Simulated scan of single mutants.
Amino acid sequence: MFGRIASLLTVLGVGLYFTGWIYRWAYYSYFQLEVTTLDLPVESFLIAPIQVFFGNLSGGDFSTFFRTIRIAIASFIIFPNIFNLIKLFTQKLDKILNQWRLKLLRWSLKNKHPKITRYLQSFLYFKQFNYQKYDKALIDEIVVTFWLLTILFFLGKTQGNLDAVRDSRSDTSLLPTVTLIIPENQLPLGRKIDKYKLTDDPNINNFRIIGDIELYEQLLLRDYNNKTDPNFPQVIWRLLFDTEGQYYIFPSPLKKDVPSNFRPPVVVIQQSDRGEYIVILSPEAPPKP
C-alpha cells in the first residue's frame, strides 16, 4: 500500500512540476524573459498549478475552473475511444501487411531470387504489431501519460498567456505597483524630486548606451506618472519579479484600447545591499489629486 502511495505521489509531483514549469514559461515569455534565467524556487513550480486549475476564484473569476472541469470530462470521454482507435489501427495495419505478404509469396513462386523475397518477408513479419500480443497495460499507460502531459501543457500554456496579458494591463493587473527611489546619478531613468515636484530629466552624461536609443527615449517619457497633464502618457509601473539581486519592473499603460500584440518593455534594476534604494509596493496607485 505504501509503495502505491509513494508511486502516486511521485507521479502527482511530476505532473504538478511540469504544469507549473509550462505556466511560468508561458507567463514570462510574454515579457520576453526566459524562465531558466530567473532564480525561481523549485516549490513555486508546485504551487503555480493552483492558478492553472482554479484561476482567480477569490476574485470571482470561475472561467478557469470551469475550463478545467470541461477538459476533465472530455478526457474521460475520449480515453476509451483512443484505446479503440489504437486497436482498430493495429488490426488494419496487420491486414495490410498480410496482404503484402501474400503478394510477395505469389511473386516469390514466380521469381528466381527467393533470397530477396525471404528478406522482404522477414522485414514485414518484424513490422507486424499486435495490440493484444504485447503488454497491453504498458501501452495503455504510455497513451494515458502522453494524453495527460498534452492536457497539462495546454492548460499551463493557455493560463500563462492569459495571466500575462491580464497583468500587463493596468485596469486588470494583479501585480503590485512599484515606486523606486534611488540616489541621484545612479540610474539613467527617473526624475529629481524637488519639494515633491518632479523636475528635470535624469543626467545621462555619465552613461553609455548600446541598442535602440528610441526605446530608451520612450521610457524617459514614461518613467513617472504625470497625472496633472492630460497629454502626458499615463502609465503605472508594476513589479513583475523580485529576486535577491534584481528588480524586474515594467510600465503598464492605463489605456484600455491596448493592441493585442502589446508587449511592455521590462527594466531590470540591480538591487543595492547598502540600503540606498527605497521600494514602495502598493496594490494600486493613488488616485488623481
Rank of each mutant, 00 (worst) to 15 (best):
M1S: 13
N161I: 14
Y277S: 15
K112H: 07
F62Y: 15
G156I: 02
V11D: 11
F62P: 04
S58G: 13
P114V: 03
L281E: 12
V235H: 14
E244K: 12
N261D: 15
R238A: 03
F31Y: 14
I82D: 01
S260H: 12
S272R: 11
L189F: 13
I139T: 10
N206T: 08
W21T: 02
Q218G: 09
Y247K: 00
F79N: 02
P114W: 10
I213F: 15
P233H: 00
K103T: 03
N98H: 07
D201C: 10
N226S: 09
M1D: 06
I69S: 01
Y224C: 00
N84H: 09
V52T: 02
V268T: 11
L198H: 11
A285C: 07
S108Q: 12
Y125E: 11
K157P: 04
I280M: 11
Q132H: 11
V35F: 01
P251E: 12
D39P: 00
P253D: 01
P289C: 00
K256A: 04
N98C: 06
I236Q: 15
L198P: 04
K115W: 10
F126N: 08
F146H: 01
K255D: 13
Y125A: 11
N231F: 14
F123W: 13
T19L: 09
T150V: 11
R166T: 12
W25G: 04
N98P: 01
Y131K: 02
S122A: 13
F76H: 05
D194M: 12
S63R: 15
N81C: 09
Q271T: 07
I73N: 04
V279D: 02
L281I: 07
S168G: 03
K110N: 08
L219W: 03
M1F: 09
L240R: 10
Q132N: 14
L16E: 05
R166V: 05
K87L: 10
